[in-house]
């Protein structure tokens, strides 16, 4: 068989047309809404009605999920291992707290300001992760995370130092929805932000930009050879991820009315990596699935062994890697793609 079909002009053009039709179909299929996506959001709403006593932990999950989804843009798409993603989460948390304390109690404003501030930090620090190897990137991201923690610690007059930031209460969302004692409004607010954030990042994932990020991760040398400006793309992706990480931090502040210096602690950067790895990288929803599992496991562990749960989180990491995390996170591929079984290849 010949590799290159030697066809007459007529059949060649008709086969080209067939190829175009199939290509268009395949591309549409790529970005089609998957079955599990719908399940996730239905479950999120259902939880509101079915588990009214679990609002706090559900809120925690939603916040962690947004944080993890934002990391996926950096890790799962651009392929950058970050040990300091919590720098953006923490900054967002403090900014939201300071906004509520000194300026505007309205949460959405605080959320946006926090996102922008974290985005600026992301933009500034993204230039430091451009060069060098994985090792230098680990050092840089870890260093930036630690530096932020140190800044918060040193500027106690602003941040409350080790005592954290308190004494503010977020106002009604958009001036309409007051936070309630049971955290119901807070939960809906967080799920809403998570939904919007995930949808935005989903659009990005299926855009030419998202494709080029995966190309940079897959083969940086070749991606340059098809004219992908790698550095620029990484700067943009890192900045966007920082915005959403900052928003996740702001949500934590607004739903708990407190900022603890713990928001900048190293273990948060490690936790969010673990979350993403449990759920699987590179398809955004891994952050959500991972956040659910991680929070439940951590909650269970901290009941059994309140002081030493860190040991088991560590054990989990070690086992996860030794078993092979690919094998674990591949389960998503076995979920049905859509409701009907019809294949349209």
């Amino acid at each position: 068989m010949s590799v290159l079909p030697q066809e007459t002009t007529v059949s060649a053009s008709s086969s080209t047309a067939a190829a175009e039709t199939r290509a268009a179909k395949l591309m549409k299929r790529r970005s089609r809404i998957r079955f599990y996506e719908i399940i996730v959001w239905i479950a999120a709403i259902a939880a509101y009605f079915l588990l009214p006593s679990k609002m706090l932990i559900l809120t925690e999950i939603a916040i962690l999920a947004l944080f993890a989804v934002s990391l996926d843009l950096v890790l799962g798409f651009a392929g950058i291992v970050s040990l300091g993603h919590t720098a953006f989460f923490g900054l967002g948390a403090y900014v939201a707290g300071l906004m509520a304390l000194h300026f505007i109690a309205e949460p959405v404003t605080g959320l946006i300001v926090a996102g922008i501030t974290s985005g600026v930090l992301g933009l500034l620090t993204s230039f430091l992760i451009l060069r060098g190897s994985d090792l230098t990137r680990l050092m840089t991201t870890l260093g930036i995370g630690l530096m932020m923690a140190e800044v918060a610690n040193q500027m106690a007059w602003l941040t409350g130092g080790a005592d954290g930031l308190s004494g503010f209460s977020p106002g009604p969302i958009l001036g309409m929805f007051e936070f309630d004692l049971f955290g119901k409004v807070g939960y809906l607010y967080c799920v809403g932000v998570l939904f919007i954030g995930t949808m935005i990042m989903r659009r990005i994932a299926f855009s030419p930009f998202g494709l080029s990020l995966k190309a940079i991760k897959g083969n940086p040398m070749r991606s340059a050879m098809v004219a992908v400006p790698g550095r620029k793309r990484i700067v943009t992706a890192y900045t966007i991820a920082a915005v959403f990480a900052g928003m996740a931090g702001a949500l934590l502040t607004q739903t708990t009315a407190f900022v603890s210096p713990d928001v900048l602690a190293f273990h948060r950067s490690a936790d969010v990596l673990l979350v993403l790895v449990i759920g699987g990288t590179g398809y955004l929803y891994g952050g959500i699935f991972g956040a659910i599992l991680f929070t439940l496991v951590k909650d269970w562990l901290s009941v059994i062994t309140p002081q030493y749960w860190m040991f088991y989180i560590g054990l989990l990491l070690v086992i996860l890697v030794l078993i092979g995390r690919d094998r674990l996170s591949r389960w998503v591929e076995y979920l049905p793609e859509r409701f009907s079984k019809k294949e349209d290849r």
Partner: peptide, 23 residues
Amino acid sequence: LETVALAIAEREGVGHNLWRSIA
């Protein structure tokens, strides 16, 4: 398909678009 579409998109200068689906 994704491979060559990426190269063509970059050549056409739309590779930086992060809002429109490549489809």
